[in-house]
Write a protein that binds this DNA or RNA. Structure first.
Length: 813
DNA sequence: TTTGGTGTGGTCTGGA
DNA sequence: TCCAGACCACACC
């Protein structure tokens, strides 16, 4: 029989002593089908010192015991493959079991005929998908026989042949989002409520106290809640289970409570319990047969840089990504609801809302996860938990398969060594001309670093070749081969081409249509990998590490932007600012016309795929000076276009470690100033100072968010956020690195740190601090270029009674 | 262990 | 008491 199937996830199991790949699929009628493939054997490569034939013979005889387990070689093949651009003979060593690979490698390592060993740490399923060319979220054609298994899928096929198909059709998969609420009772964290929502409209709240609200099932104990949750998931039979921080919270808690209550946490399609795989941050919970996506993981690794939310809380992220308003219920209220047994419907709503937000976030972001899976041939389970570095690596490994030996991952010592010597010169940043400028034209290089890599053939394998010594990188003693195309430049070149094609096709489609969304996600995946490629070469943990490459890339970047700056000057522009790949120009004449010819002129001189792009015209642009001295401040500016859209970079407004009051006031000031209303801006600040002084500002406007980046004991210098965290820790709160501490500076004596408190412990706020250390600096940063001084904002001399808020180190004039 | 360098500015700390 | 430099966080690209 032959079947066309849509692949969702994959894993492997040991069956009759053999590793068997399991592909979890749906067919076109949405029937769940599992495909078993036992035709694939795990392998790795050995580079022999000289005689591969002789090595092969010795290897075939290898047999040893490891903890009473017999380990033997399945087979050995001699293959030709590229090592440092040269074809060599290597041994491809097949094993009977994936876990034998590292053991065989360790034995062979000691043989004196061994030159090296490669690709022993590429996981079995990853290897399979790459080698077979199977892309998750795409279609395959499976030939084989239907078999019986104890898997809870509607059909199981033992495959004899699998072919990947290029069918555009997407299947609508069933997504189930869940969320738990817990409560600590006599030192034990218990589950008090669970909520579930699916993208097919099912919703349910499970709890065990009272039964008078919508969508709820009231049970009699925690145990029953867990059992009912398990039953519901299995009955709903989703393809995808999503949570928000479910790797770090929901599943660990669920596992612990299930064990405590002697319930088997079986929610997959086989009889195994939920397992945890070690990952960077939290261990990843795996459910056999269902795809578990912790959407928080994807957001914090990949989406985060594009967000401006202060914390990665579900509420904040949903607010920014989905435009869903935040709720005002907090933890204290939840606890109150539960302990008093009142307003439980509110608590249920809260819990249900969490799984709703999780579901909506998943619906929005899963296309991006899937696009990355299709690009790298990795399961969405993997790609949703990958960092930038891992995504680039996965893609490069895919492109190396069967052609190039993948370099080994560096050892811990090697990484340390690379770290020590790493530092190299980066991008050029021009000091801006402070002031409010009119009619600015902005240009930037399209994907500067990737285009340099491609156009200059920057690659570890082309570095300092023996044939092209003449073509040196500017100001460097390095050169790159002109004759042979490097691996990374070739790969990135394809990506750029594909992305251009997708973008072209997107123009013919309707925004918001299924196809458009899919293309958008695809081009976003390409962009993600492209943009991370330069960083990956300079990353100490990289398999394709090449400091000289990274150094050359930035050197070329500086070279090109300098050329643009120089040409702009010669063409009569005033160069206001430039950072890495962008340039801000002003001119007396018709800026649009001049921009066009300038762009043409520059692009004629650029090699390969390099291109300068016209970003836009801005009606006004504000550049400020540094806090001390008259120098222009880099990386801080604000722009307004002819439609009134405002762009703010670098200012306190866009930083999370400033109070909302200082940020919103600064934003208003910027808007007024960009509209030529400086005087109104001054008045606004003065009014706000007064409000603060009279303590009329809501304390919520005054919280400051700062991340704890290490264990609190290991800080050499105790800043306000660390001090607040330490106090909270003393009161029993658990403080971990990565947490974002919210604090308020209260009245009292001593340093700012001494007076920093978490909101729940803050009894008041110190107006003096918020005036002198928050509001005034943020406002003055903008207004100083207009000649406004601190005294004017503080209304000194005009009003009495403000003296006590003046910093002690200031003298009255 | 979890892409890179460049840059600003707040707060603390310790010595004059 | 004052101030420079260290430390720290977080922005830009």
């Amino acid at each position: 029989m032959k079947e066309k199937l849509f692949v969702i996830d994959a894993d492997y199991a040991i069956m009759q002593n053999k590793p068997v790949i399991r592909l979890y699929c749906r067919d076109k009628n949405l029937k769940s089908v599992t495909v078993f493939d036992d035709s694939f054997a795990p392998y790795f490569y050995i580079i022999p010192k000289n005689n591969p034939e002789k090595y092969k013979k010795n290897l075939e005889k290898l047999s040893f015991y490891d903890n009473e387990e017999l380990i033997e070689i399945k087979s050995v093949k001699i293959e030709k493959i590229l090592l440092n651009m040269k074809k060599i003979d290597v041994l491809k060593v097949f094993a009977f079991h994936p876990s034998h690979i590292p053991k065989i490698k360790d034995v062979v390592k000691t043989w004196k005929e061994t030159e090296g060993k490669r690709e022993f740490d590429i996981l079995f399923v990853k290897r399979y998908l790459v080698d077979k060319g199977i892309k998750p979220l795409k279609w395959i054609e499976v030939s084989g026989k239907e078999t019986r298994t104890d898997l809870r899928t509607e059909k199981s096929i033992k495959s004899s042949h699998i072919k990947s198909l290029d069918i555009k059709k997407e299947l609508k998969l069933k997504i189930l989002a869940f969320d738990l609420e817990t409560f600590v009772e006599s030192g034990e964290q218990k589950i008090i409520m669970a909520s579930i929502q699916t993208n097919t409209g099912f919703k349910k709240v499970l709890t065990y106290k009272k039964d008078n609200f919508k969508h709820s099932v009231c049970l009699s104990s925690e145990k029953e809640v867990i059992e009912k949750l398990i039953e519901t998931i299995n009955r709903q039979d989703p393809d995808i289970v999503v949570g928000y921080n479910s790797d770090g919270f929901d599943f660990p808690v669920l596992k612990e409570r299930a064990e405590k209550n002697k319930v088997d946490l079986v929610i997959g399609r086989d009889k195994e319990k939920v397992k945890f795989h070690r990952k960077a941050r939290a261990s990843a919970a795996t459910i056999h047969g269902r795809l578990h996506v912790d959407i928080f993981s994807f957001i914090s690794y990949i989406v985060r840089p594009t967000l401006q939310a202060e914390t990665m809380s579900l509420d904040n992220v949903a607010n920014e990504l989905l435009g869903i308003k935040k709720r005002d219920m907090n933890w204290k209220e939840i606890e109150k609801c539960w302990t008093e047994g009142k307003n439980l419907d509110k608590l249920a709503d809260y819990c249900l809302h969490d799984s709703y937000l999780t579901l909506k976030l998943a619906e929005q972001l899963l296309p991006n996860v899937f696009a990355l899976s299709k690009l790298t041939n990795q399961t969405p389970f993997e790609t949703s938990r990958m960092t930038y570095g891992q995504l680039v690596e996965a893609y490069l490994i895919k492109k190396s398969a069967k052609k190039i030996l993948v370099p080994n991952r560096p050892t811990r010592e090697k990484i340390e060594e690379r770290r020590r010597i790493a530092q190299y010169e980066g991008a050029f940043v021009k000091e801006p001309i402070p002031g409010l400028h009119r009619n600015l034209a902005v240009f930037d290089f399209r994907s500067l670093y990737p285009s340099i890599i491609i156009s200059h053939n920057i690659d570890p394998y082309t570095f300092n070749c023996s044939c092209c010594r003449k073509h040196k990188i500017p100001d460097m003693d390095y050169h790159f081969c002109k004759k042979k195309k490097g691996f990374i430049p070739g790969v990135l070149g394809e990506l750029i081409k594909q992305r251009a094609e997708i973008k072209k096709r997107m123009k013919t489609l309707k925004k918001g249509s299924m196809e458009y969304t899919d293309f958008y996600a695809q081009q976003y995946a390409l962009k993600t990998v492209l943009n991370a490629s330069y960083g990956y070469m300079g990353f100490s943990g990289s398999r394709w590490y090449c400091r000289e490459c990274a150094e050359s890339i930035t050197a070329l970047g500086r070279h090109y932007i300098h050329e643009v700056i120089e040409t702009a000057g010669k063409d009569g522009f005033v160069v206001i600012y430039s950072d890495t790949d962008s340039i801000f120009l002003k001119s007396e004449g018709d800026i649009e016309k001049q921009s066009k010819s300038f762009l043409k002129k520059i692009n004629k001189t650029l090699p390969g795929v390099m291109e300068l792009e016209f970003e836009g015209i801005y009606k006004r642009g504000l550049f400020v000076s540094r806090k001390t001295g008259e120098k222009g401040a880099k990386k801080r500016y604000a722009l307004i276009d002819s439609d009134g859209n405002i762009t703010i970079r670098g200012f306190e407004k866009v930083r999370r470690d400033w109070s909302a009051l200082a940020k919103t006031t600064q934003e208003k000031v910027l808007k007024l100033v960009l509209s030529d209303r400086k005087d109104d801006a001054v008045k606004l600040v003065q009014r706000t100072v007064k409000d603060l002084k009279n303590e009329k500002i809501d304390i919520k406007e005054l919280t400051i968010h700062t991340q704890i980046t290490r264990p609190i004991e290991s800080y050499q210098q105790v800043g306000p956020h660390v001090a607040a965290a330490k106090k909270a820790a003393k009161k029993g709160e658990i403080i971990k690195p990565g947490m974002i501490i919210t604090y308020i500076v209260t009245k009292g004596k001593g340093s700012i740190s001494n007076r920093a408190e978490l909101p729940e412990f803050a009894k008041n706020y110190d107006p003096g601090y918020y005036i002198n250390n928050q509001l005034i600096p943020a406002a003055l940063r903008v207004l100083r270029v207009f000649g406004v001084e601190e005294d004017e904002l503080l209304m000194k001399g005009k009003q009495t009674g403000l003296g006590r808020f003046v910093k002690t180190n200031q003298t009255l004039s």
